[in-house]
Write a protein that binds this DNA or RNA. Structure first.
Length: 309
DNA sequence: GGTAGACCTGGACGC
DNA sequence: GCGTCCAGGTCTACC
């Protein structure tokens, strides 16, 4: 017998628009169903792992969470907390973003999809570096198949041998960095709560992220936005393509990277969202609305490497 | 502080 | 088929 309950969504929240706003909605264990417009995934709850499906009826101010098994009160509270983080339901800065960049006010874009935990966001970012998107999808799927269907916890990953992760999860040279990273989080030496704490400055958080194994300037800036801090630009090869193809910039990559930072500077502490929704709009102009993408077809092909195909 | 080269993997591409 | 290149970077050694 399953459990069904509802949670409050902020005014103007749209599940399909706001889940399908960042590529991680296509990575395991997340499963977006374009036909039903629902998001499913396995979650780690106090009572064990549970399969949860999130739905929104029309423009209802409440989201429905349906679990396959019976959930205790503690399980429901934990599930709500994890879902609130994934869906960025507590992001109170959408109005500020729209005042700084009114282009997105009409569509209501502003919230970005992320993971239920800081650690999962860090691992997903590491698995997206120096690799084509389909390989990122494979790595995340294997981590769930081999280690934990709800996504490996830091403790679980810290206990794995790097050689096993490389062989079975296809993470390549990222093997040692992932185990080391997991060990730091599992031991408490790296405290996820500190990174989530809004009283710490963006500069402090960015520098702390830069000190983590496998985290360079791109990854640190990307994890910043996943923490709800939008003051940094994770400039990568996608950004350079965007600068050339959409913004009309010319010159060597180094020069375009410099100009991109200057271009988005007027958007201040919201510059990542201005940049990202431009990029996302470009993807959707080529492939249709993201909430219609199938993970096994369009979801594998939407990045720049495939755009000329 | 700046730069070259190595690093897993898998898919695209040219032959 | 098969070899080469490179993708939503990072790290180290070297200058």
């Amino acid at each position: 017998m399953g459990t069904v309950f509802t949670i409050a969504a902020p005014r103007g929240y749209r599940l399909k628009r706001d889940v399908c706003s960042y590529g991680y909605f296509l990575l395991a264990p997340n499963r977006w169903d374009p036909r039903s417009g629902t998001l499913s995934r396995t979650l780690d709850l106090p009572g064990g792992v549970a399969e949860v499906t999130i739905a929104q009826e029309g423009r209802s101010p409440r989201l429905t969470l349906a679990a396959g098994g019976r959930l205790s009160r503690a399980d429901r509270a934990a599930a709500e907390g994890l879902v609130r983080r994934m869906l960025s339901l507590d992001d109170g800065s959408i109005g500020r973003f729209h005042r700084l960049d009114p282009r997105w006010k009409r569509s209501g874009r502003g919230r970005l999809f992320r993971s239920p935990t800081f650690f999962e966001d860090v691992v997903k970012t590491v698995t997206s570096c120096n690799v084509a998107w389909p390989s990122t999808m494979i790595m995340n799927a294997r981590l769930c198949e081999v280690v934990n269907p709800a996504f490996p916890s830091a403790g679980q990953l810290a206990r794995k041998r790097p050689s096993m992760l490389r062989a079975r999860c296809r993470v390549g040279y990222r093997d040692r960095r992932l185990v080391e990273l997991a060990g730091l989080v599992a031991s408490g030496e790296v405290d996820g709560a500190w990174f989530e704490d809004r009283s710490n400055s963006d500069d402090e958080v960015f520098e702390a992220l830069r000190g983590l194994p496998g985290i360079g300037p791109y990854s640190a800036a990307n994890i910043m936005q996943l923490l709800g801090r939008f003051s940094r630009l994770p400039v990568d090869t996608e950004s350079v393509r965007h600068g050339r193809a959409v913004l009309g910039m010319a010159g060597p990559s180094r020069e375009i990277e410099r100009r991109l930072h200057a271009h988005y500077e007027p958007f201040g502490d919201q510059k990542f969202r201005s940049y990202w929704f431009e990029l996302w709009e470009f993807y959707e102009s080529r492939h249709g609305p993201a909430w219609e993408w199938e993970a096994t077809s369009t979801g594998r092909l939407f990045t720049a490497a495939k755009l000329n195909a």
